[in-house]
Each structure stands twice: as structure tokens, then as C-alpha cells.
Amino acid sequence: MGVMPRTVAKLLFLPTLVAAVAILVKGYAQTGDGFSAGVVASLGMVLQYLAFGRREAEKLPLVGFAGRGAFVGLLIGLLVAAVPVALGDPVFNHYPGPGAHVVYLGTLELITPVLFDVGVFLLVFGFAVGSVRAIANTITREEEYRGPDADDLGVEDLAKGERR
């Protein structure tokens, strides 16, 4: 990739993450939610992969945990759904209930749906970045396979076995 896309990608990375967080926290009074925040954030990450390639993008913090993050997000979502059941309320009930006093942090209301949306955000971001990582890794491995040290490789050994 040329200089321009690299510069633009570098410049855009932090703003996309900030925009994603903004979408996440604004979701309760205005348009936005965890899902679209996750999509925006993962688009920013995909841009890094496209512009700098796998090795550079992997150096960014927390990318390595993206796949696990998806499962953690799903678990958070399920917990938010399940905890009310343990307390004797219907599943997916939110706290504090309608009309009750809510603590504000800036414009963000501190209610359990926010936690659920954080889970959704993690799930979407983790899934998108995790699959991009997986695809990038297989491509790189295939290139290595064409090279001299092909013996210690996983998937391709199966293929060789079949062709034998």
C-alpha cells in the first residue's frame, strides 16, 4: 500500500475507536447501540490490517485477545439476561426499574442494559477482528507452505496426505 492510505489509516484509527465509544454510550437517549459501535470499531481495525498488513496490525494492543473477547462479550450478555432470573424477576429484566432513580455519569445512564450493550460490542468486535485475523493467518501460512520449511505445518499436511 502507498503512503496515502497508510497515513489516512493511521490518522483514522483513534477517531474510529472514539466514535465507537461515543455510539456505545449515546445509545440510550439517541441513535446508537453496542452492535453499531462494534461494527465501527472493527472497521477501524480492518483498515489497519489492509493498510499495514498482518504483522504490523498484530502489534496493536489487545488484538490478540479479540477472539476470546467475543466469548467474554457473549458471556456478559448472558449474565445480564440470567441474573434477574436468579433474583426472581423475568429474564432480561433491567435494573434500576422504570421510574427509579438512575445515577448519571455525564450523559451515560448507569443501568444494566449498558452492560449488555458492552457485551454486544465485545461480541461483534471480537467476531469481526477474530475472523479477519484468522483469514490473514491462513494466507500467511499458505505462503510459508510454498517455501522450504513446509514440513511442520498443520492443515497442509492433511492435504498432502489426501494427494498421496
Binding site: L75, L78, G88, V91
Partner: peptide
């Protein structure tokens, strides 16, 4: 156990466990 708990358990239990086991 209340009816609604019984209704949620068969779905929620394997689901949450599946997510946890996917990491193992």
C-alpha cells in the same frame, strides 16, 4: 422452582456453558 426459572434454565444453562467451554 418457579415456572419462569424452569423455562429459562434449559436454554440458558447449556448456552452459558457452551460459551465457557469454547475457550477450553
Amino acid at each position: 422452582m418457579t415456572g419462569s426459572t424452569l423455562l429459562v434454565l434449559p436454554v440458558g444453562l447449556p448456552w452459558a456453558l457452551a460459551v465457557a467451554l469454547a475457550l477450553l
